[in-house]
């Protein structure tokens, strides 16, 4: 299921990121690490989001993502392509229907591929990056492969 893509600047981003040393309880609309989320009561988790790095193995967060409406995947380097797989597995294997947001070091020019893999939100450093990302999102009108936005390959749609 395709979601509307949200592009925001860091200044406009409505979620806070909990410092790593902070302990529960957390305020509503805070992104917390897997360890922090584990320490929160299950019934309180719906107010929070999970933030995890692009190199996180899917199995280590598989249970946690069931309780949150937002997963933020944070990139330490734009070259770390594991985040693409992580997003697809969240969507296609775990049927995660909440928001998947990219944060950290990624390039506006990568946003097209990210969106195809299941990301639905991007936090960017400034308005210029937001504009570039919008261009990137609309760069291609078709694609060969299956992905989250196109569950069937081109050859089955022709």
């Amino acid at each position: 299921m395709k979601q509307a893509i949200e592009l925001t600047t860091e200044a406009q981003f409505s979620w806070a990121i909990a410092p790593s040393e902070q302990k529960a309880p957390f305020q509503e609309n805070t992104l917390v690490s897997p360890e922090q989320l584990t320490s929160v009561n299950k019934e309180d988790r719906w107010k929070l989001g999970l933030i995890t790095s692009a190199d996180t193995p899917i199995d280590s967060v598989g249970e946690l993502v069931k309780d949150v409406p937002v997963v933020a995947i944070n990139f330490h380097a734009f070259t770390d392509g594991r985040g693409f797989t992580l997003a697809r597995l969240l969507r296609e294997r775990l049927d995660f229907t909440g928001k998947i947001i990219a944060t950290g070091q990624f390039l506006p020019d990568q946003v097209h591929y990210f969106a195809r893999c299941g990301f639905s939100g991007f936090v960017l450093p400034d308005q210029e990056s937001v504009d570039t990302s919008r261009t990137s999102l609309n760069a291609f009108s078709e694609a060969y492969q299956i992905s989250w936005d196109r569950p069937e390959p081109l050859f089955r749609r022709m």
């Binding site: 734009f78 070259t79 770390d80 392509g81 693409f84 797989t85 697809r88 990568q110 097209h112 591929y113 990210f114 195809r116 893999c117 291609f140 694609a143 060969y144 492969q145 992905s147 390959p153 081109l154």
Partner: peptide
């Protein structure tokens, strides 16, 4: 060729 062209998941491999 078609499958690999602009494959969204595998453009930033190791």
């Amino acid at each position: 060729r078609q499958w690999s062209t602009l494959h969204p998941e595998f453009a930033y491999l190791p």
